[in-house]
């Protein structure tokens, strides 16, 4: 009798579903943050910004906020929650006494983080569309795009969480996450930066994520979007691979 590595990850997902059945309000409340940003910066400040790339400022930042919230949600779940369960709650110690292995844990938690991101993305897209901020039928693909974004960051986040030793190390996660959120052409086009800096920003995974989602909501889809998506998929897959190895090292001593 052999069990394929990673084939029982859905049971971890089931466990999380069981937990949040009672705490759905926590999940639900997460829908609002990107919407608050959209109303504040898109509509409030947008009045003073005018049009960007031929669309209103709200239309311009909506896809960026969608991608950012997919990132933030995935990273939060993949780092804070996983770290807690790994080091304190000992959830995985119990799991590994069963036929499940580290690969199941890594995959199960990634898929959960993504599921949560998907909920937020869906809520945001529906709201943005009803406000007239989605300019093309391609916009329907913004949802699967958000899943790809979530996968990329959840994978990287889970890998990062296996390196975190104390709560104070989360400041290091923030030290990467916040600049990425603020400077990945989220709030203004790349052309604001000097050329050299533009090349640095292009490597930011969030930049790729925003370009991807923005192409769909504004209907400016091209073949290069496959590169954007591919970049995120590869990063996510590398993250999961690393997480699986690290978790085996941390849990199976």
């Amino acid at each position: 009798m052999t069990t394929l590595a990673g084939t029982r990850g859905h049971l971890l997902f089931e466990r999380n579903l069981m937990v949040y059945r009672r705490a759905w309000l926590i999940i639900f409340s997460g829908l609002f943050e990107p919407l608050f940003y959209l109303f504040s910066l898109g509509f409030g400040l947008g009045h003073f910004v005018g049009r960007v790339h031929g669309v209103t400022y709200a239309s311009y930042i909506a896809p960026a906020l969608l991608a950012s919230s997919a990132m933030n949600g995935a990273i939060y779940d993949a780092t804070t929650n996983v770290f807690w369960k790994l080091r304190y709650a000992k959830v995985y110690d119990a799991v590994l006494a069963t036929p499940l292995g580290p690969a199941d844990v890594a995959l199960g938690e990634t898929s959960w983080a993504q599921f949560r991101g998907l909920l937020y993305a869906a809520g945001f897209i529906v709201t943005a569309a009803s406000l007239g901020l989605v300019h093309s039928w391609w916009g329907a693909l913004a949802l699967p795009a958000a899943v790809v974004v979530g996968f990329g960051f959840a994978g990287m986040g889970i890998a990062a969480s296996t390196f975190i030793r104390t709560w104070q190390d989360f400041d290091l996660v923030q030290l990467v996450q916040l600049p990425m959120f603020l400077f990945s052409a989220t709030f203004y086009p790349l052309s604001v930066y000097p050329t050299a800096l533009q090349w640095v920003v292009r490597f930011s995974p969030l930049y790729e994520a925003i370009v991807l989602v923005r192409s769909f909501t504004l209907g400016t889809v091209g073949w290069t979007n496959l590169v954007d998506a591919g970049y995120l998929v590869v990063l996510g897959a590398l993250g999961i691979r690393l997480a699986r190895r690290r978790m085996a090292g941390l849990l199976l001593t």
């Binding site: 052999t2 937990v19 119990a94 590994l96 006494a97 069963t98």
Partner: peptide
């Protein structure tokens, strides 16, 4: 490992209840 663990019961030193 997984096949063996499937037939074992484990009570660890520290409780790992959820």
């Amino acid at each position: 490992g997984p096949a063996i663990r499937g037939r074992l019961g484990v009570v660890p030193q520290m409780d790992t209840l959820d």
